[in-house]
């Protein structure tokens, strides 16, 4: 694992999660307050419980800001890039899934991910073909759950 470049205490960075949570609690609270409803058969109604939770989270996150706990190391550099690429690959796979179909999009996803886990090109292709074939077999033949073959292939 690459050592993060941060040296010494980073007081503010550690408080970021707490601050984000506090802001979220406030937004959630406002959202709860503004839930529209005409009638509820119980005295609390649909707003009280979310409001209570928003209040609890607000208090807890203030506590978290005050006492942030051990240092957090956020992904940086190469790791951050890898994460972004992996997610982009996932979103791309998801959005092209109905068009390219299961076998092709799975192949692309697996080759990409395998390469990110330091497979050689040969092994990445093995992973792509292997995973596509294996899961296609499990789903369509064993479980009888149809998978899209892709509209570009007329599937």
């Amino acid at each position: 694992m690459s050592k993060s470049a941060i040296e010494g205490p980073v007081p503010f960075g550690q408080r970021v999660p707490g601050i984000v949570l506090f802001v979220f609690a406030i937004i959630f609270g406002i959202g709860s307050w503004n839930i529209e409803y005409s009638f509820s058969s119980d005295p609390l109604g649909p707003t009280a419980f979310p409001l209570l939770l928003a209040g609890i989270l607000a208090v807890l996150s203030l506590w978290q800001i005050a006492v942030p706990g051990p240092q957090v190391s956020w992904p940086q550099g190469r790791l951050l890039l890898k994460i972004v690429v992996l997610l982009a690959l996932c979103f791309l796979t998801a959005s092209t899934y109905p068009v390219l179909g299961f076998p092709v999009s799975t192949f692309i996803l697996c080759v990409g991910v395998a390469l990110m886990f330091e497979a050689s090109l040969r092994n990445a292709v093995i992973s792509g073909v292997g995973n596509a074939a294996f899961w296609y077999f499990i789903f369509t033949i064993l479980l009888d759950i149809p998978l899209p073959l892709g509209s570009v292939f007329g599937g």
């Binding site: 996932c90 796979t93 998801a94 899934y97 299961f102 799975t106 996803l109 697996c110 991910v113 395998a114 390469l115 886990f117 330091e118 497979a119 092994n123 990445a124 093995i126 992973s127 792509g128 292997g130 995973n131 596509a132 294996f134 899961w135 789903f139 998978l147």
Partner: peptide, 15 residues
Amino acid sequence: PNWLLIPGILVLSFL
């Protein structure tokens, strides 16, 4: 190896 296992986990999640 992870290069076989992890793509498999992702595919199974999607599916």
